[in-house]
Design a protein around this nucleic acid. Structure first.
Lengths: 200, 200
DNA sequence: TGATTTTTTTAACATTTGTAAAAAGAATAC
DNA sequence: GTATTCTTTTTACAAATGTTAAAAAAATCA
């Protein structure tokens, strides 16, 4: 175990290890090996965690706070993904293909992340079958979430999508500026305003 | 190796094993174990491969021909996914959660599949790390494709999406009825007709 | 607090897409 | 080969969403 850690860092990482094993349990030596490559990172509000144009080499988990993945279309920010407590946040295409990403990650509020360097993690995959399984199941899970989101955006009206978001993720509306929610829903800010006016 | 196989079946399965290892190679004994649980299935045009309402217990690959996943919305068929030669076709949510699926799989033309029973496959995951890795990478790949599709449906107009489909998958337009392409693109048949009229 | 910046709403108009029904065209079956 | 069915296009109108600009409201900062 890395001896340079503060007790705060250690506590965060232990909490993370416990949380992530709800997907698939790890043997003790696997858990230790994973713990060894993890690190914590705390950022303030609206701070850039990963820059557009750089290749993604770290897998992040949100331990406290929230963040989002965005990209630019015609100079405007489009929000692709929101991550809250216990959510994975990663620019998947860049990570898996080792290519520069056209997306960035920024925090929404003061946020505490646990980071895992992908190269070190991929090495652990070779050594520890159960670590690779855990991440196989994690990828499966985010894949299913993406299918759900695709279905909702393909076959629901903007109003249905907004209402669904209100029901399933009321925390979104509280913390996140509506312009980001609008682009996440695939509509303009004006359109979202109209929908909100029509509901209340 | 299962001795009840015809030489045709065997040939198909060997071709499949070769094809799938482009994602990640397998050791000889892993390859044999996987071969042992695979089977082939040939269906005619517009035939149901997996019924709506049943739980998905088989992972399919298209060896020849094409097929699609669909579901019903207000009594109408919505096509969610097309699979062509060498594509995976699976109702992921039902498979991974062991729940009855509200989706079905039907062939578009005469189609040859290789099927893998999921329970047997998951058992092989325990025994052969490299088989689980192969499928981890496969899931990764379809996850990235789903993200791409989400981006296109969220931030492109219907016309841009149709043109993109023409460019990237010209084979779609040749074999598949336009009504299915329309629902895949998230628009009505009438709208697709208008777009097509506007282009030529 | 007051000034400045950012976010959200509103308005007017344009464009896209949807709905329903009918007509035209293509494929299929007897 | 003709009748039947299925697919695609067209038309007319309705509804939803986009665009641009301005006003109002809220948040931030000095």
């Amino acid at each position: 175990m890395n001896l340079n850690r503060t007790s705060n860092e250690l506590e965060t990482i232990l909490k993370f290890l416990k949380e992530i094993q709800s997907y698939s349990p790890l043997a003790d030596h696997s858990e230790k090996a994973l713990a060894n490559i993890c690190f914590t990172q705390k950022v303030g509000k609206n701070e850039v965690l990963q820059e557009i144009g750089k290749t993604c080499k770290t897998i992040y988990f949100v331990m406290e706070g929230s963040a989002r993945i965005f990209y630019l279309k015609d100079g405007l920010e489009i929000t692709e993904y929101f991550a809250f407590k216990n959510d994975l946040i990663v620019r998947a295409e860049s990570l898996f293909k080792s290519l520069p990403s056209n997306k960035g990650i920024v925090s929404i509020e003061e946020t505490l992340f646990v980071g895992i360097p992908s190269n070190a993690l991929f090495s652990l995959f070779d050594e520890f079958h159960d670590i690779e399984r855990l991440f196989r199941i994690l990828i499966q899970t985010v894949y299913l979430e993406t299918i759900k989101r695709l279905e909702s955006i393909q076959f629901q009206t903007a109003e249905e999508r907004y209402k669904g978001l209100l029901e399933n993720h009321p925390e979104f509306i509280q913390k996140i500026p509506l312009k980001h929610i609008a682009s996440y829903l695939g509509i303009t800010q004006v359109s979202l305003s109209r929908i909100r006016a029509g509901i209340s």
